[in-house]
Amino acid sequence: MRTLFCCLVRVLALVLLLAAPPLLAQPARNAAAPPLPLPRDQSSNVVLRAPKAERLRSFREQRDFQYVTVKSELSAWDLLWMRFWRWVAELLNTRPGKVLWEYGIYAALVLAFVFVVLKLMQVDITRAFGRAPQRAPLSYDTESEDIHALDFQTLLQEAEGTGNHRLAIRLGYLKVLKQLADQGLIRWQPDKTNHDYLYELPAGPLATAFRELTQQFDYVWYGEHDDLTPTHYAQARATREAFQQLLASPRRAA
């Protein structure tokens, strides 16, 4: 009898253990439920505070709080050049642009080489690629002139008497070259340019005056200014005579 009672107690305990998990899982399902909303607090008054004007002003002055579009500080000229170089860059990115750039470099190198060769050969580029000066109405040939064989006094008087001021300026300039050559300051050669003689002169007042005289001659002769007035020619002759006086002065190199 006692053994039967013990078996019944064990069976009842086993039944209670099997029924325990559903009972324990119920609080877990209740915990997963959404929380209930809290009631609104109506006992305290919320006061909105505005910042002080000084503090707002300090914030506005700070660069981090200035949310505005900054205008470009470039000028209209800079913007124009920027658009131009952008257009050049876009052009060079195309196939024709790349071909033009490649062969353009070779062409520039060839032109630079030709220019150097012509300068070494002492060729007057302005005469080679420009218009040839018009010949004077006198029986005078500039191609076969020799400063050591010309009678400058007679030729100058004839040119000035006929009003050929352009030729008179050329003859006066050649006379100056002869005086420089006679004093050993330059070595005259028919194929030399006027600027070659300028480089041969030592630095000083004489070289400065000769540079001004050369610029005057180039402007009149190679510019083919046949419409020189007597006043203009008188000014040019005064410049030449001032140079000749400086050349004759014993203190010209001072």
Rank of each mutant, 00 (worst) to 15 (best):
P230Y: 06
F115D: 15
Y199I: 04
P137N: 03
Q216W: 08
H148V: 01
A31K: 11
Y199P: 03
R187W: 04
M1Y: 04
T142A: 04
F5D: 08
V110W: 12
L247Y: 04
Y140W: 09
P230C: 02
Y233K: 02
Y222W: 10
D226C: 03
L180G: 00
M82D: 15
I186E: 06
Q189T: 11
Q216Y: 06
R2F: 13
L206M: 07
Q235C: 00
P34M: 00
P202F: 03
A28Q: 14
T239G: 10
E224Y: 05
F243V: 02
R29Q: 13
D196F: 14
L56V: 09
L91F: 14
L156Q: 10
R60F: 08
H225D: 09
L206N: 06
A28I: 14
Q216H: 10
G130H: 05
D41A: 09
A207R: 15
Q42V: 09
H165L: 07
G204V: 08
G161P: 01
S75C: 03
A203C: 01
H232F: 13
H225L: 15
T229G: 05
Q26H: 13
P27N: 08
V114C: 03
W87C: 15
A238V: 05
L247V: 03
S139G: 10
A107H: 07
P35I: 04
P133A: 02
R57S: 03
I125H: 03
G223T: 03
Y173R: 01
F5E: 12
L16V: 15
T94L: 07
E212Y: 09
A20T: 15
D218F: 04
R60K: 10
P27L: 02
A207F: 05
L177H: 00
D196R: 15
A209S: 13
R86T: 15
K98I: 01
A53G: 05
Q62F: 07
D196C: 10
Y197D: 06
F243R: 03
P202R: 14
M82R: 14
T239A: 15
E224A: 06
A242C: 02
V11L: 14
Q62L: 09
L92K: 13
R211E: 08
F84R: 13
E145P: 04
H148S: 07
R251N: 15
Y103R: 15
Q235H: 09
S144E: 06
R86W: 08
W81K: 13
L48S: 05
E160C: 03
K52H: 11
E73L: 12
D151Q: 02
G130I: 01
Y219L: 13
L247T: 04
Q216G: 11
H225Q: 13
V123Q: 03
R86C: 08
L120E: 07
L16R: 13
W81A: 10
V117Q: 02
